[in-house]
């Protein structure tokens, strides 16, 4: 790809790139992958995938997005659309492995034994690791991938009430453990 072509693509909005991709322009789609690839991979890692699994799932999600790009109408952001595809794919993989159900049934909330910060507060990645796996998964699907509780329940094939409980417990733990940019969610909550 020439420098001028690259420059032209980088100057376009996501929706314009998606329109080009819908007409078969793979370079335009490549620009979308360049812009949002890291965010999708980071989300998958936060949900609980290993780095390798996250890369595989993110690749599958982008390929799947390219194949169904005509369905993207620009109503939400392209990133959130791909994140939802990736998160659902992760949930399906978990279900297929039957690991999730076993772990949820056996899940005992883990206590935080360490912290990256001497004050006892940590960043999002560390805080998520301190949650039980089901809590981490449900919180990440709802707040990271933007799925509703109902959508998350469907993706995980779990009762809605179970998902809500996991989210609630996960949120309660995160509130006390997160320290975003030196601030805490409790602090934000207080100021809100």
């Amino acid at each position: 790809m020439s420098r001028a072509e690259r420059h032209r693509l980088t100057s376009l909005h996501d929706v314009e790139l998606a329109t080009l991709a819908a007409s078969g322009d793979r370079q335009a789609f490549g620009e979308l992958v360049r812009r949002h690839g890291s965010a999708v991979r980071a989300l998958l890692r936060r949900i609980g995938a290993t780095a390798t699994e996250a890369d595989d799932l993110a690749q599958d999600a982008f390929i799947s997005a390219f194949e169904s790009i005509a369905e993207f109408r620009g109503e939400g952001t392209f990133a959130s659309w791909v994140k939802k595809i990736a998160a659902r794919a992760h949930a399906r993989r978990y279900q297929r492995d039957k690991r999730l159900r076993m772990r949820i049934e056996a899940a005992e909330p883990e206590d935080v034994g360490h912290s990256a910060d001497p004050s006892g507060r940590m960043d999002l990645d560390e805080a998520l690791k301190s949650l039980a796996e089901a809590e981490r998964l449900c919180v990440s699907l709802c707040y990271g991938a933007g799925l509703s509780h109902t959508e998350a329940a469907e993706a995980l094939n779990l009762p809605l009430g179970t998902v809500k409980s996991h989210v609630k417990r996960g949120l309660d733990k995160l509130k006390t453990r997160l320290a975003p940019d030196g601030d805490t969610l409790e602090g934000r909550r207080g100021s809100g």
């Binding site: 980071a42 999002l124 707040y143």
Partner: peptide, 23 residues
């Protein structure tokens, strides 16, 4: 507010070092 703050934190992701290789 808490939920929005959490969404903002999730949305904040730095570019991974092998981003070009992934593309």
């Amino acid at each position: 507010e808490v939920e929005r703050a959490l969404e903002r934190m999730f949305a904040r992701a730095t570019e991974l070092p092998d981003a070009d290789a992934f593309v």
